[in-house]
Amino acid sequence: TTLAKRMKEIDRILSYDSLTRLTPAEKKTLWQERHLLVSHANALPKFLLSVDYQDHSQVLQCYGLLTKWEKPTPEQAIEMLDARFTDPIVRSYAVSRLDSLKDEDCEQIALQLCQVLKYEAYHDSALARFLLRRAYRNDKIGHRFFWNLRAELHIPEIRERYSLLLEGYVRGIGSKKKALVNQNEVMNSLIRVAGQTKKETY
Rank of each mutant, 00 (worst) to 15 (best):
Y136S: 12
H56D: 15
K102L: 06
R150G: 04
R171D: 13
L44R: 01
I155G: 10
W69M: 07
Q115H: 11
N148Y: 02
E79A: 04
N138L: 10
L165D: 08
L44S: 02
L81T: 08
E79G: 03
R159M: 08
L65V: 08
K140Q: 10
W69I: 09
D55I: 04
F145M: 11
D82A: 07
A83Q: 13
Q115I: 13
L131C: 13
L113W: 10
K68T: 12
L66V: 06
Q61T: 03
D87K: 06
L111V: 07
Y119H: 11
F146T: 13
F130K: 15
K176R: 14
R133F: 09
A41Y: 01
D105R: 09
V116K: 11
F146H: 12
E160P: 03
L127Y: 07
S96L: 00
R144A: 07
G174T: 04
E160L: 09
V90W: 10
S100G: 04
L166F: 02
P156M: 09
Q76K: 00
A126N: 09
P72M: 00
D103M: 06
G64A: 05
E120C: 08
D55P: 01
L60D: 11
L44V: 01
F47I: 04
I141V: 14
H154E: 09
Y162T: 07
D124S: 15
D139C: 01
K68M: 13
L60S: 10
L36I: 01
L131D: 14
L165S: 08
L113K: 12
E79V: 06
S125A: 11
K118M: 08
Q108N: 13
L149W: 03
L166Q: 07
L111A: 12
G142S: 04
N42T: 09
G172R: 03
S163N: 12
K68D: 11
M80H: 04
S39F: 00
R133I: 11
R144S: 07
D103Y: 01
R171G: 08
K68G: 09
E160C: 05
L113M: 15
L111G: 12
L166R: 04
Q115G: 11
K177H: 08
L66E: 02
D124E: 15
L164P: 01
L101C: 09
D124N: 15
D105P: 00
A94R: 04
R84G: 14
R97A: 03
E104P: 02
L48I: 02
